[in-house]
Design a binder for these strands. Structure first.
Length: 560
RNA sequence: UGGGACGUAGCCAAGUCGGUUAAGGCACGGGGUUUUGAUCCCCGCAUUCGCAGGUUCGAGUCCUGCCGUCCCAGCCA
């Protein structure tokens, strides 16, 4: 929530809505989100979802979820279910759930109307011939009219009915709108409205043998539902005259307006369904919900919150200029959200042992540690300390550079939520690798005690050896190591897969409070990043934890 | 060499009928607070709106020309 008088996010679509409401063109508005159930939703779809639902919410309108299921060859029920789950997860509830297939009969009747008024005809030219007759538009050449264009209405009506009845094989005939073969607009050169597909549809079964094309189905579906503002992406801009033509030439039940906006793209990833499918099918990622995927399911598993995704798109705005947003911006939105809400915990990813030589052997004390440093209302958790602890290998250097605030020989450092310790001895193996660090702790310096006021430069995290729990931590990073994987002409995008997009840490050590978590729970591992418990935890002998995103690290940046 | 769009900082992006200091966020730089090198808090960050002309007292907003980028040859959506 923000109480500042910051300017309300605005955009051209919002302005159109405001005008339509003020002018009385509409009393209320209605939008729709119309995915084709042929794949999984990704972050780009989330932009459309946030826009459609968001703008209706803002002005007291409603939004339908409509599956654009006009092509039985590519669509199925599983994709439908996944899409519904994703939309709900993002935090939106549709007013009505519809399918373009709900309107097959009405669409058919409107098509018959067009045939009867001489504005549609049954074509029997082949697909190749139709293409050829449409002319070479690069040379601004007008199309030629089909010999079947002036077929008597009765004949078209009869043929169309028989197409519907299933009398013909695929491709034999097609129903075309009779518009203008000389139009400079390609989509107006007698577009196809129906094709024969003797295929069974996941919802209507074998009832239909003809299926409507997108252009024919979409606008009419909008009109039937009383959609006022039909928001879609830029590539449909050229279809708008056809969208309007269809509605003007039938007794339309509604008067929707199509408005186009730019898709939302991100760098360091790919977003097309084809590419995403390849990544899955070729085993480059584990599945559609692999945490490296830009899919909603992937982001969810990665630990992104719906709030962060919504805030991201709300802030990014909507325009008509194609853009590629930095992945860093998205990452920043999860950090911001998780910073507010994630309970803190300690986890050591690359452990090295520290022995507190003056700490009583066999003793354990349970220290109180706040779940959130700025939010006492989140309460405390208890963290066990004993003589042997693990610290991060990175947090000790024998011969540190300037400005290294962590542990060094003879140096002091604070153990987060616990005591100040001083390094007294370093034990190494034959290879010179540090195997053990001996320290003395200052018993007066425990957090909360008067002696705790003593300041030392660095604070490091730790986990008790006796109480720490092993977990598999999956360190995720960007899927590609270049901003634009599709940008190189003669190189395949797969060549740019980041080899460190997933680094496995088979045995990290986590504090006990984390092990009690359930899949989907999130944490901030202090000084490291935001992490979430993966569903794989249920079938494994140890918790499986995904890194959502690292913390900002100005130390690492300084050392670059 | 066709048609449809777009071009405001490194990345998004607001800019009502042309009117005075070109919003905001991210990134970046500097400082402060801090038991996370996190967070938080200050401060700074486009004499200029793709380029060139023109209209006007006045132009990012209007006109002309040019340049650049994206989309379009499914009986896909």
């Amino acid at each position: 929530m923000n109480n500042d008088p910051t300017p309300t996010a605005t955009n051209f679509i919002r302005n159109i809505v405001i005008n339509d409401l003020e002018s009385g063109k509409h009393q209320s508005i209605k939008t729709r989100f119309p995915p084709e159930p042929n794949g999984h939703l990704h972050i780009g779809h989330a932009k459309s979802i946030c826009l459609n639902f968001g703008i209706a919410d803002e002005f007291g309108g409603t939004t339908n979820l409509r599956f654009d299921d006009t092509n039985p060859l590519k669509e199925n029920e599983d994709f439908m279910n996944a899409i519904m789950e994703d939309v709900r997860w993002l935090g939106f509830e549709w007013d009505n759930l519809y399918h373009a297939s709900d309107y097959f009969e009405q669409l058919y009747q409107y098509a018959v109307h067009l045939v009867k008024t001489g504005k549609a005809y049954v074509e029997e030219l082949s697909a190749e011939e139709i293409l050829e007759y449409r002319g070479d538009w690069m040379n601004n050449e007008p199309g030629r009219e089909s010999p079947w264009r002036d077929r008597p209405v009765e004949e078209s009506l009869d043929l169309f009915e028989r197409m519907k009845a299933g009398e013909f094989e695929d491709g034999k005939y097609v129903l075309r709108a009779r518009i203008d073969m000389a139009s400079p607009d390609r989509f107006m050169r007698d577009p196809v409205m129906y094709r024969i597909r003797n295929a069974s549809h996941h919802r209507t079964g074998d009832e239909w043998h003809i299926y409507p094309m997108y252009d024919w189905a979409h606008g009419i579906s909008d009109a039937i539902e009383g959609i006022t503002h039909s928001l879609c992406t830029l590539e449909f801009e050229e279809h708008r005259p056809l969208y309007d033509w269809f509605l003007e030439n039938i007794p339309s039940p509604g008067n929707p307006r199509q408005i186009e906006f730019a898709r939302g793209n991100l760098d360091f990833t790919v977003m097309s369904k084809r590419r995403l499918r390849e990544l899955v099918e070729e085993g480059i990622v584990s599945d559609w919900d692999d945490p490296r995927m830009p899919t909603i399911a992937g982001l969810r598993r990665r630990g992104y919150t719906p709030e962060s995704i919504r805030a991201f798109w709300d802030d990014m705005g909507v325009s008509k200029s194609n853009s590629i947003i930095s992945m860093g911006v998205l990452e920043n939105y999860v950090r911001n959200d998780l910073n507010e809400r994630a309970p803190r915990a300690m986890a050591v990813l690359d452990p090295v042992k520290v022995i507190l030589t003056n700490y009583p052997e066999g003793e354990t004390e349970w220290l109180e540690a706040p779940r959130h440093p700025q939010k006492p209302e989140m309460g405390n958790r208890r963290v066990p300390l004993s003589r042997d602890i693990w610290i991060e290998r990175d947090d000790f250097m024998e011969d540190p550079p300037r400005k290294f605030f962590r542990l060094r020989p003879d140096g002091e450092v604070r153990l987060r939520n616990a005591y100040i310790i001083k390094c007294t001895k370093v034990v190494k193996d034959a290879d010179g690798e540090v195997t053990e660090i001996h320290c003395e702790y200052d018993p007066e310096s425990r957090s909360g005690m008067p002696g705790a006021a003593r300041k030392v430069k660095g604070t490091i995290h730790w986990v008790s050896v006796e109480h720490g729990i092993e977990a598999e931590v999956r360190m995720y990073d960007r899927l590609f190591n270049v901003a634009n994987p599709l940008g190189e002409k003669d190189r395949d995008y797969r060549e740019f897969i980041n080899p460190h997009s997933l680094d496995m840490v088979p045995a990290a050590i986590i504090e006990p409070s984390v092990a009690e978590g359930k899949p989907g729970d999130f944490f901030q591992f202090e000084r490291s990043g935001y992490f979430t418990i993966d569903p794989d935890s249920e079938s494994r002998d140890r918790p499986v934890i995904n890194r959502t995103v690292s913390l900002r690290d100005s130390w690492a940046k300084m050392n670059k």
